[in-house]
Nucleic acid binder design. Structure first.
Lengths: 340, 340
DNA sequence: TTGTATGCGTTATCAC
DNA sequence: GTGATAACGCATACAA
């Protein structure tokens, strides 16, 4: 059943006016007499008239909507980013559409295509772990479609970006571990295709180097689907714990990987921090309630969303092409708790 | 800067054809010669033509989008529902727009108005804790706008609904507490305006009655903002624990309230379950990792989203008005862990 | 002060 | 087999 809404035409017919008069009256144009205005506005109110945003979009050639692509919203970090995006977008009169890639390259590509085919005026994206080929993004960007990257950015594309200081965050956390005397520190990384993974790994290596700990590549493991695939984390941990020289600490590079480790430890009855210490990136609001409470690197997620959205609106609303792009780097917060 | 996309007109001009021919060729119409089709399709592919969904929406008077309003997506239960909604919607060629009410009646009303002004073809909604006045929903529903309620439904409005058996879920959980010997069981409820709150409370009362425990109204507390306001939970717990006869167990009626209790206990050094037991509704994927691990009532969130979406699409796509509405009641799952 | 005509991108209808 | 035209709902340049 089609729901039929009221249009300007309906109002015009009833009041014996032209659609243009009604349109102008509703927009409070100076050309219209106070009397007519009152008539139109009151009637519109009475029958609950609302302009059709679709028609407006077609006319103005813009949707006043922003598109967001993230791997998943059921993730503390991303839902906090989204809160930041939403608050800025709404205050500037923009609406928001989220699409989840579920860490799938194909889904990301499809979502992107849909959004860019004029459903939204611009895009905020944190790419999927699978994404290695950026041509879908490059093409759009080159044709002038406004894109801002956050969190998982793409180096090859020149535009505004918002990230955290991944290197420093991990360096601080790893140094914390080495200072506590941990020697065999495993690193469970996200997909190796992400720039952020490299930056984080460098922080880890630097800290180990400074503590005169040799880097053992067998302790560095990648989860190319970001822990989204069933037993990705389990497999990686099995490998690490099967070796003769077991780790005494673990660094986990994302929310999902961090809780993934905890689930594994619980299942295999590995005690934290007695048997192995754990630090990880996490914006989980309950990480202090865990058993043990987690030592975490926390990202300013909300702020990230706000800044990224302001950047995007700048690109969208600018009268002339923007050539000078910025990359904003935010600081992480390091919170020490029982797990180390 | 406005991003200019390719239109049928552009193709027509370049190939010296009319827009109608191009349109037909692209839709593989039988009227068009194979030769022309090939020409058009190949060129369209080359320049990456994508039809403008806005123009299509205007023409077809439908958007192929569904609107979702929930209190917040940073909530395990709702993000799981959303996953269910998304999967069904996409498989049926629909796109999804989420709006968060953040438990504010005003925000809910605004979001609703925006969506119903033809941005979406139908609406899935779990109302905010603040919502007492349903006229915004009643009006739309009466005018034939397709709405399906899930989780927090509105009794007054006749349409499809999907809920869980709240009475039974709470009855089972409370009985579990009485059987364990708990006598003073406090009940931290969500907003008293929600139907679901009444159903749940009835389950609690029935279980107490069967255990010959008198109902103590001072142990029943409401959080009318669903725990969204700063120290709502803290205030309520302060009251309960300030009384002489402290509770020996607590039932929390939502995800947010359950973790809210845990945070309070941690802060005030109240041991669970030694000082007080805790059961609550929760779909948190990490509730087994908490300290202590939580005894919870878990809802089939994903399934709820799927069923609700199927109902909504039925309303949208039906040729004639639907008069027979269903309320689907799903079973909850009760998981016993350390907190009781 | 108000009305008429046009166009945003697309497709259906009717003409040739 | 292809082209011209109108329409979806709205805003605006131009006419009156």
């Amino acid at each position: 059943m089609k729901y039929e809404a009221v249009t300007i035409k309906d109002i015009a017919k009833v009041l014996n006016l032209s659609t243009s008069t009604v349109s102008r009256a509703l927009r409070d144009s100076y050309e219209i007499s106070a009397e007519t205005k009152k008539l139109v506005i009151e009637y519109a109110e009475k029958i609950n008239y609302r302009p059709n945003p679709i028609a407006l979009s077609l006319k103005e050639r813009r949707t006043r909507s922003l598109g967001i692509i993230v791997c998943e919203i059921a993730n503390s970090f991303f839902s906090q980013v989204i809160d930041g995006i939403e608050s800025v977008a709404y205050s500037r009169g923009y609406n928001v559409t989220f699409l989840q890639s579920h860490e799938s390259f194909d889904k990301e590509k499809l979502s992107l295509e849909y959004l860019a085919s004029r459903s939204v005026d611009g895009l905020l994206i944190s790419v999927s772990t699978e994404t290695q080929d950026f041509s879908h993004l490059t093409q759009l960007s080159n044709r002038g479609f406004p894109i801002v990257f956050f969190d998982r950015i793409v180096d090859e594309i020149d535009t505004h970006k918002v990230i955290v200081n991944n290197f420093k965050g991990v360096y601080t956390a790893t140094t914390h571990l080495t200072e506590k005397g941990y020697k065999r520190i495993a690193y469970i990384a996200n997909s190796e295709f992400l720039t952020l993974t490299k930056d984080r790994l460098n922080g880890y290596k630097k800290a180990l180097g400074e503590a005169d700990i040799e880097i053992d590549e067998s302790l560095i493991k990648y989860c190319n689907h970001g822990g989204m695939i069933n037993d990705e984390v389990e497999k990686v941990l099995d490998e690490i714990f099967a070796s003769k020289k077991k780790p005494d600490a673990i660094f986990a590079s994302s929310d999902k990987l961090t809780t993934g480790c905890l689930h594994y430890f619980k299942k295999h009855n590995i005690k934290v921090p007695k048997n192995v210490a754990l630090v990880g990136f996490s914006n989980n609001e309950n990480s202090d309630l865990f058993n043990p409470s987690l030592t975490v690197i926390k990202q300013p997620a909300m702020e990230m969303g706000e800044i990224a959205t302001n950047y995007l609106l700048e690109l969208i609303e600018s009268k002339r092409p923007i050539k000078d792009f910025e990359t904003r780097i935010l600081d992480t917060e390091f919170i020490v708790r029982e797990s180390t």
